[in-house]
């Protein structure tokens, strides 16, 4: 079954008098449980595509579907609800809430979803254990390394069992060893939970993990490669 469909999606930005086509008639379909990398050089449109899929940014034209829901026609509240219930985000800069501990960062999203306190604590502990941070649950982001923070961000993204995780250059600030560990974690979660992963990157080592590689250039998809052996 198709998890994501982008049909003829266009998005243009204006920088002064210049017009930048961030997405230029993009057509893309991603199956449920897929593990897809979107690669492009800087300014190639990969972040814009992820933002459009995640409902963070509206395309100028075209359609974006998550499952059976056409999200480019939803209002702000409905989009927020969709993100809360169905999509997990992992950002390049981790973006954890600095005044909350690792466990509280994970719990926060569950609290917003209305999960009872006892269940929240149980699940956040389990998920932190799954990402290998069970000993660091009481630490705040400033007391953790970049890799550890990104693992907390991953835990936060998957704790609500989303059907889709969007990761925007998640390894950009990590060293190669930590990046490798993170990608292994993504692959494991994809395999164990059946979660669809769409990862934007220009890191070749990350691309090597993907079963499918979508290459973009100047807002257009230029190559769509199904990789074997991953």
């Amino acid at each position: 079954m198709t998890a994501i469909r982008c049909i003829n999606v266009c998005k243009t930005y204006h920088q002064g008098r210049d017009e930048i086509k961030a997405l230029d008639h993009v057509d893309l379909a991603i199956d449920e449980g897929a593990f897809v990398c979107v690669s492009a050089p800087s300014g190639g449109g990969k972040t814009t595509l992820l933002n459009a899929i995640g409902g963070l940014d509206m395309p100028d034209s075209g359609e974006v579907w998550i499952g059976d829901t056409r999200i480019d026609q939803l209002n702000k509240g409905e989009l927020a609800e969709l993100r809360l219930r169905h999509i997990g985000f992992v950002f390049q800069a981790y973006n954890l809430i600095p005044v909350l501990t690792a466990r509280e960062n994970v719990e926060f999203v569950m609290e917003v979803r209305g999960v009872p306190s006892v269940e929240r604590q149980k699940k956040s502990r389990e998920i932190l254990q799954e990402v290998g941070l069970e000993d660091l649950e009481g630490r705040r982001p400033a007391e953790m390394s970049g890799g550890q923070q990104q693992r907390v961000a991953v835990a936060r993204a998957i704790v609500t069992d989303p059907s889709l995780v969007l990761a925007d250059e998640p390894t950009a600030n990590l060293d190669s060893k930590t990046s490798e560990g993170l990608m292994d974690l993504f692959a494991k979660l994809n395999k164990d939970h059946g979660t669809t992963f769409v990862i934007s990157t220009h890191d070749r080592r990350v691309m090597a993990h993907a079963r499918r590689l979508v290459k973009m250039l100047d807002g257009c998809i230029v190559e769509d490669i199904r990789q074997k052996g991953t």
Binding site: E81, R85, F108
Partner: peptide
């Protein structure tokens, strides 16, 4: 503002 943008992207509504 940046932090609020992040939590909104996680699905937190402005009212909250």
């Amino acid at each position: 503002t940046h932090e609020f943008g992040v939590v909104m992207s996680l699905g937190v509504k402005p009212a909250r």
